[in-house]
Computed example of a mutant assay.
Amino acid sequence: MTTLFIADLHLQQDTPELTQAFLDYLEYRARNAHALYIMGDLFESWIGDDAIGNFEQQIIDALRHFSDSGRHLYVMHGNRDFLLGERFAELTGAVLIDDPAIISIDEDVPVLLMHGDSLCTQDGEYMQFRAMTRDPKWQQQTLALPIEQRRQLADRMREGSGSANSSKTDDIMDVSQEAVENIMEQCHVRTLIHGHTHRPDVHDFRLHGDEVAKRYVLGDWHHARDEGWEVRLDGMTLTLERFSLSELSHH
């Protein structure tokens, strides 16, 4: 029984090679998985479940095919696709899960799943933006706008995010170790899997009670670098794996 965790694909109409890589991933690499967790930023932007064009439909159909074949599909919101809604879940056969979420491996070992952006507490400007965009009232007002207006808003937000980030230091945009330890203590877990930072790695550290803890960070998928990332759970063993996007259909 294999469970897979991925994040930060940032799929968009302008990157057809990346879209094809994801379709190949579902068809080949994830073929024998029992469950797939997509932990935020599957899409570069999502402006509402009522704005589904050919590109979005292509992804929805592939996810539906995956879930219809008896496999479990879970989707968490990211900082780019926080407007994914119940209609998307219904169309794909996915379950939308909270951020954070706790799952159990082998029935009694809890693992904490997060997108990861809420851990970047040193970036005060971003934390304010996050609080605004996660506010149900703000989301309701935004979804009430005409589709074209929402598209323009999403473009402006992406541009603003890009220019703001260009002036921030790397450590400000990374997760805060204190925030990591606090949430892990609160949730009584010793294992955390998250994405968002695009810094794939496995971090070993000690929590306040001197217990050994692990933090698995998923990398982003990148066509130019020809790399995708996943965390695989086989039995009780978690591994962070890098794979070639161009070779997915060859396996």
Results as ranks from 00 to 15, higher is better:
residue 50 D to H: 11
residue 38 I to S: 00
residue 93 G to V: 14
residue 239 T to H: 11
residue 249 S to V: 06
residue 12 Q to N: 12
residue 44 E to C: 03
residue 130 R to N: 02
residue 200 P to S: 15
residue 155 D to M: 12
residue 167 S to G: 04
residue 228 G to R: 01
residue 97 I to D: 06
residue 12 Q to F: 00
residue 187 C to R: 13
residue 68 D to C: 06
residue 88 F to Q: 03
residue 74 Y to H: 07
residue 117 D to V: 01
residue 122 Q to L: 11
residue 4 L to Y: 14
residue 233 L to I: 09
residue 127 M to L: 03
residue 102 I to T: 12
residue 109 V to W: 02
residue 40 G to D: 02
residue 118 S to I: 00
residue 203 H to Y: 10
residue 167 S to A: 11
residue 21 A to F: 11
residue 203 H to M: 07
residue 167 S to D: 08
residue 162 G to Q: 12
residue 198 H to G: 05
residue 195 G to W: 05
residue 65 H to G: 08
residue 212 V to S: 08
residue 53 G to P: 10
residue 4 L to N: 08
residue 225 R to A: 15
residue 118 S to F: 01
residue 166 S to L: 10
residue 239 T to K: 13
residue 210 D to A: 11
residue 127 M to N: 01
residue 153 L to C: 03
residue 227 E to Q: 13
residue 116 G to Y: 04
residue 94 A to N: 06
residue 131 A to N: 08
residue 11 L to Q: 04
residue 118 S to K: 04
residue 125 E to C: 05
residue 169 T to G: 04
residue 25 Y to Q: 11
residue 138 W to Y: 12
residue 218 L to Q: 02
residue 201 D to Q: 15
residue 104 S to K: 09
residue 101 A to D: 09
residue 208 H to M: 06
residue 197 T to Q: 05
residue 116 G to M: 05
residue 38 I to H: 05
residue 137 K to V: 15
residue 46 W to N: 04
residue 85 G to W: 08
residue 154 A to Q: 01
residue 106 D to A: 15
residue 90 E to D: 12
residue 111 V to C: 13
residue 248 L to I: 14
residue 58 Q to Y: 04
residue 80 R to G: 03
residue 82 F to P: 01
residue 228 G to F: 07
residue 47 I to T: 11
residue 187 C to E: 13
residue 236 M to V: 12
residue 208 H to K: 09
residue 55 F to Q: 07
residue 78 G to A: 10
residue 103 I to Q: 03
residue 100 P to Y: 05
residue 134 R to P: 01
residue 14 D to C: 02
residue 83 L to C: 07
residue 187 C to D: 00
residue 123 D to L: 07
residue 178 E to F: 14
residue 39 M to Y: 06
residue 218 L to F: 05
residue 114 M to I: 00
residue 206 R to I: 11
residue 132 M to W: 12
residue 220 D to Y: 01
residue 8 D to E: 04
residue 67 S to H: 05
residue 92 T to M: 09
residue 208 H to R: 13
residue 100 P to C: 05
residue 86 E to T: 08
residue 81 D to L: 02
